[in-house]
């Protein structure tokens, strides 16, 4: 069961430049105004994780891809995280729309190592993501 929403080519291009040319640190995606396509709404090279979190609106849903860098066993590692941001305070219509469209976007990206469903800021806090990133590279 899916919404049938499509993924725009801009999404793919943005993801490619994050993954391959590492131009972006993160990309934030949303739905187009007509609710028919998923489009990137922001790309950023900002290194500060908190800035990224700040870019996720308090009561609206988004998707994000974040090139997460962390240290494990004193080696630097990178993992691309796919974050579904669906705050509890978002309208139910948005939640439904985003949840049922998520798979289309998620499956267009290869190389996602960590997937996170975030409903409040604690779930997408740096430590929470770090925990997931760490545990997924056991």
């Amino acid at each position: 069961m899916a919404s049938g929403v499509s993924v725009s080519s801009e999404c793919m291009e943005a993801f490619r430049s994050l993954k391959l040319s590492r131009k972006h640190k993160y990309i934030i995606f949303s739905l187009s105004a007509d609710l028919k396509t998923i489009v990137p709404v922001k790309t950023s090279a900002e290194q500060d994780y908190d800035k990224f979190v700040g870019d996720l609106p308090e009561d609206e849903c988004r998707w994000a891809v974040y090139d997460f860098e962390f240290e494990k066993d004193s080696a630097k590692r990178n993992k691309i995280c796919f974050i579904s941001w669906s705050p509890d305070s978002a309208k139910i219509k948005q939640k439904m729309l985003f949840a049922s469209s998520r798979d289309a976007l998620r499956r267009s990206f290869d190389g996602i190592a960590v997937e996170i469903q975030g409903t409040d800021y604690s779930e997408i806090a740096h430590e929470a993501v770090l925990f997931k990133a760490n545990s997924s590279s056991r």
């Binding site: 993954k19 391959l20 590492r22 494990k72 590692r77 990178n78 993992k79 691309i80 499956r107 290869d110 190389g111 996602i112 190592a113 960590v114 997937e115 545990s135 997924s136 590279s137 056991r138």
Partner: peptide
């Protein structure tokens, strides 16, 4: 193809290797 690798790796909980992420 890379979807495959990523899926596998995530399924295996392996760290993404250099080639899938192509981190120079």
């Amino acid at each position: 193809m890379n979807v495959r690798a990523a899926d596998l790796r995530s399924a295996l909980s392996l760290p993404a290797t250099a080639h899938s992420q192509s981190h120079p």
